[in-house]
């Protein structure tokens, strides 16, 4: 197999045949490639593809149809007539964990429910993201008190959480803001810049 190009100028946009819609990404990749040392240059190509994929992922988040308590109603409200989550590409609620890539924890996580949630999370294919919606999923919220026996105090005790949305319950607008935050995070990819 031929040795991949080692010189930075060869990874420029003119080498990749993509449509005009990729131009802004390519410009960004261009800016990125300037910072990358010569010896790791071949990986920039994968970075480009990742960027594209992340954009696609961010703009078509498929949440799992999964409500736990009060917040689930606001989650439904976000998907219903007035707030219309479809505007952000996240309105396709999937009934099966196998088809979903974002889990919105909407409500209190009881100790009886916790193993089920973990199982659902494990069933979701990677890459996957988690949104903790409401006080209960952040730290137990109103149901947290000394010596409580019933609930798991926060979704992050079960799965890694990407975005926390405070509120009891958060308004649909807050959920949308949280989703946009998650989109930003996904688009930024693994390279945390700036």
């Amino acid at each position: 197999m031929e040795e991949p190009p080692r010189s930075p100028e060869l990874v420029g946009p003119e080498r990749v045949t993509l449509g005009p819609r990729a131009a802004p990404i390519l410009q960004r990749a261009d800016a990125v490639s300037d910072e990358i040392p010569v010896e790791v240059a071949p990986y920039v190509r994968f970075g480009l593809l990742d960027d594209l994929l992340n954009r696609a992922r961010a703009n078509s988040l498929w949440p799992l149809t999964f409500g736990l308590a009060c917040c689930a109603i606001e989650m439904m409200a976000a998907g219903a007539s007035r707030h219309d989550l479809d505007r952000f590409g996240a309105g396709v609620f999937r009934p099966s964990a196998r088809q979903a890539d974002v889990m919105i924890f909407a409500g209190t996580i009881s100790k009886k429910m916790a193993p089920v949630i973990r199982q659902l999370w494990d069933q979701m294919p990677s890459p996957k993201w988690a949104i903790a919606m409401g006080g209960c999923t952040i730290d137990g919220g109103p149901f947290k008190y000394q010596n409580q026996y019933a609930i798991v105090e926060g979704a992050d005790l079960l799965v890694p959480v990407d975005v926390y949305i405070p509120g009891c319950p958060p308004r649909p607008e807050a959920l949308i803001a949280g989703l946009l935050k998650l989109q930003e995070k996904i688009k930024a990819g693994r390279r945390f810049k700036g």
């Binding site: 100790k111 009886k112 008190y145 000394q146 010596n147 409580q148 026996y149 019933a150």
Partner: peptide
């Protein structure tokens, strides 16, 4: 019926899981 089957306590017994009673500071 409500608690997980493997629980080893009865939740509403008075000698289980009480916090300081009565005062506002108790939260």
């Amino acid at each position: 019926i409500l608690l997980p089957d493997d629980s080893d306590f009865h939740a509403l017994l008075k000698d289980f899981g009480q916090m300081d009673r009565g005062s506002e500071e108790g939260t």
